[in-house]
Computed example of a mutant assay.
Amino acid sequence: MSDIAQTISERLKKVQTRIYDAAQAVDRLPDDIQLLAVSKTKPAEDIWQAYQAGQRDFGENYLQESLEKQKHLTRLYPGNEICWHFIGPIQSNKTRAIAQHFSWVHSVDRLKIAQRLSEQRPEDLPPVNICLQVNLDAEDSKSGFTPSELLEHARQISELPKLTLRGLMAIPKPRSDFPDQLASLQRLDDLQQQLQAAGLPVDTLSMGMSNDLEAAVTAGSTLLRVGSDIFGPRATKPDSSGDKH
C-alpha cells in the first residue's frame, strides 16, 4: 500500500471513530449517520484509495472536474459502486449534466433548479435524491431558502416527478465553540421537524463537516460532509477550470 493510500485509509478510520464516539455520547446509532467523503479538487486516485478502504459515497462541488473523475474511474474500474453526490452551487446551464450523473443533489437552492432537475432526469434512472439548501444565517455570500419560505417551496418541490425530496442541507457560519455550533445546527433540525409535521416524509439532515462533526451528530445530522480530514488540505481551485463556484 502506498503512503498516500495508507494516509487516506488511516484518516478515514479516524473520522469513522469520531462519528462512532459522537453518536455513542448522545445515544444515537452510528449506523444511522452516513459519511460523505468530499473529494473536490482531489484526484481520482485518492477517491479510489478511499473506496478500497470501504467508502462508497463521494461529494463533488465542481461539475466538469467531477465528470472527468467519474469517467476515469468507470473506465479503470467498471462496475464500481460509487454513489456520487453533487454538493456545490448550481448554475441553471449545468442542471442537465447534474441530473444525468449524480444520485444525490444537496444544494437545491431555488424552485427553478428543482424543476430543471426533474425535467432533465433520464427516464431510465431512479428519481434523484435532493436536499434543499437553507441559508440559516442570512449570509449574502451563500445561497439557499430562507427559513420562512422553506415550507411553501418544499411542498411544491415534493410534488415534482423524478425527484425524491430527502431533507435539508446547510453550511452555517463557522463557529469554534461547541455550544454555538450546536445551537446553529439545531435550527436546521427544527426546520426538518416542521416539514415532517406538515406531512413531508423527509429523513435527511446534511450538515456537519470536519470542524463541527461532533456538534452536528449531537444536533441530529444523518449525513456528514467531510473532506480535509479524509483527504488532507485542498488545493485552491484554479480559475481556468470553467467552474465558477
Rank of each mutant, 00 (worst) to 15 (best):
I98T: 03
T95P: 11
F102E: 00
V128P: 02
Q120D: 01
G88C: 12
Q70W: 13
S103Y: 01
W84V: 04
T95R: 08
S118M: 12
P78W: 06
E68H: 15
R121M: 01
F58G: 02
Q115W: 09
G59R: 11
T95Y: 14
Y77E: 03
Q120P: 02
A138L: 08
R121G: 00
V105H: 11
H106E: 04
I130M: 01
I130W: 05
V108T: 10
G54Q: 08
W84C: 02
A50R: 00
E65Q: 03
H106G: 03
E68Q: 15
A97G: 02
A53D: 07
L73F: 05
G59I: 09
F86N: 05
N80P: 10
Q55P: 12
Y62G: 01
H101T: 04
K94N: 15
F86L: 05
S66N: 09
K71N: 12
F102K: 00
Y51D: 02
G79D: 08
C131T: 03
D109A: 11
Q70R: 14
C83I: 06
K94P: 14
L76I: 00
W84F: 08
P126V: 03
K94Y: 13
E119W: 07
L63K: 04
G54A: 07
P78E: 03
D57W: 07
N80K: 04
S118Y: 12
I113G: 11
A99W: 07
A99T: 09
Q64S: 06
L76E: 02
V105A: 14
Q55I: 14
E81Q: 11
N129D: 15
L111P: 05
L73S: 06
E81K: 13
E123F: 04
P78F: 04
C83K: 10
E119C: 05
K71H: 12
K71T: 15
L111G: 01
D140H: 13
E119K: 15
L125P: 08
H85K: 04
P126R: 06
W104K: 02
L136I: 07
H72P: 05
A114E: 05
I87H: 00
P122W: 06
K69E: 00
D57A: 05
Y62I: 00
F86K: 03
Q70N: 10
V134M: 13
E60R: 08
K112E: 15
